[in-house]
Computed example of a mutant assay.
Amino acid sequence: MAEVLSQQQIDELLGSLQSGNTDLTKIEEQTAAQKIKDYDFLSPKKFTREQIRLLQSVFENYSRMLSLYLSSQLRISCQTEVLQVEEEEYREFENALSDSVLVAVMGLHSDTYHVEDKQILMEMSRPISFSALDKLLGGNGSGYLINRDYTEIEISLLTYLFKQFANLLGDSWSNYFDISFSMDSIETNPQMVQSIQPDESVAIVVLSITLNELQGNLNICLPASSLEELFKSYDAKFVKANKHDAPHEKQLKRESILKQLEGTPLTVSAILGSTEVTLGELLNLHPGDIIPLESKVGPGSITINVEKLEWFKGTLGTLRKNYAVKVEKAL
């Protein structure tokens, strides 16, 4: 989340700009310089680089599913992408929220990893939420310039929408963990969320949502305590196993995978040749006409495709009175 200035800091900045005491060139140089963030040894990082990459992969899959769902539900063009995945303290996420927001509190459940009573937060920007409500109620999605609190009917509709978001979350995590998500409640005041301590480390995932010309964010807050048991299992099964596997164990795994794939059906096709004709020539074709191909007749003149990929070169012939192709070489 971006750093939020207080009203006093904003007033001081505007005053210095109006008085001419601020060097704009110096500000541009400071902005262009590399930003270095101090490491707080009193609050060590809870998420490793591997875990951040895992979250990136999970939510890239989630963004694709969310884009398809919103496009079909709202019947408008929708694009969703992951803007950033970073770790910070919960107080930074809470301070960046305005007084009137839409925060969905979702429960995280897993019998496999003995995870229960854990929560994550999902916050949707006001323009996106009001545009979605406008579309759900039969509008064209343009009624999003609204500056007021949500009504009970609007909260009920958004609760239904967030329930579908929770189901999609479970699907996006299913490739890695056997977990599910439930829609617990919706809060319009961030101060009402008391389940996360201000100094707790959280992973913030920012998704950019574009509905036609309107763009907004969907911010997802994942507390480290909620994901602790999941990451312990992931590190034990994947990260550590991959680091300490002996060469012969990797070879056995490779042979096992190849053996399981041996029975996979594949389409093999022999391409005699290809050519290009105009539409007029195609319409004037009659029985008995000859179409010259670009390939030459001879050994290795036939291309053999596996699925849609060129794999071999072969020669045309016969076998037991049937046409056949002899494989000459692999590509």
Rank of each mutant, 00 (worst) to 15 (best):
I153Q: 01
E229C: 11
K243W: 01
E81K: 02
L283V: 10
I76M: 01
G138R: 04
F162I: 04
N189H: 12
K35D: 04
S110V: 13
V239T: 14
Q260D: 13
V239K: 15
Q197H: 05
S185P: 00
R75T: 00
G139C: 15
Y160Q: 15
R254K: 11
M65L: 11
K329D: 13
N175E: 14
P247S: 02
L293T: 08
S180Y: 04
Q251G: 06
L55P: 10
H286E: 13
L17N: 04
I155Y: 03
S295A: 07
Y62K: 06
I304T: 05
V4W: 02
M65H: 05
P265Y: 12
V205E: 05
S208Y: 01
R320P: 01
N189T: 04
E310G: 15
T278W: 04
L145M: 10
Y234M: 08
R53D: 10
A33I: 00
R320Y: 02
K313R: 15
I153F: 11
S63N: 05
L66E: 04
A33E: 08
F181W: 08
Q251Y: 02
I27Q: 09
E187G: 02
E81I: 00
K308E: 15
S57M: 11
E281C: 06
N322Q: 09
E3V: 00
T278N: 05
L133T: 15
V103G: 05
Q194H: 03
G15P: 03
D134H: 10
I186F: 03
N219K: 08
Q7S: 05
C221Q: 07
D11G: 07
Y90A: 02
T303K: 14
E328S: 12
E89H: 11
L102P: 07
L168R: 00
L24Y: 04
E86H: 13
S110I: 12
T80V: 07
S43N: 15
L211K: 11
R75M: 10
R64H: 10
Y144G: 07
L54C: 14
L222M: 13
D23I: 10
S63L: 06
L68I: 06
T275P: 14
S72I: 00
Y69K: 14
V103P: 01
Q9V: 01
P223L: 04
D289S: 05
F238M: 12
E200C: 03
N305P: 02
I179D: 00
E154D: 12
I302A: 05
H248W: 06
E28H: 01
V101R: 08
D38N: 01
A324K: 01
Q79W: 00
P265C: 12
Y144K: 05
V4P: 01
V4S: 08
S301P: 05
L102C: 08
G314C: 07
V325Y: 00
V115K: 07
E87R: 09
E152F: 04
Y69F: 14
K26G: 09
E94H: 04
I146P: 00
K35H: 04
L283E: 12
P44F: 09
A104C: 13
E200I: 11
D184W: 00
F47T: 11
V239G: 02
V202Q: 14
N61S: 10
W311I: 07
H244G: 07
L108S: 09
T264D: 07
L121G: 02
K37W: 04
I196L: 09
Q191A: 09
Q9H: 03
R126N: 13
L102Q: 09
D235Y: 15
G107T: 10
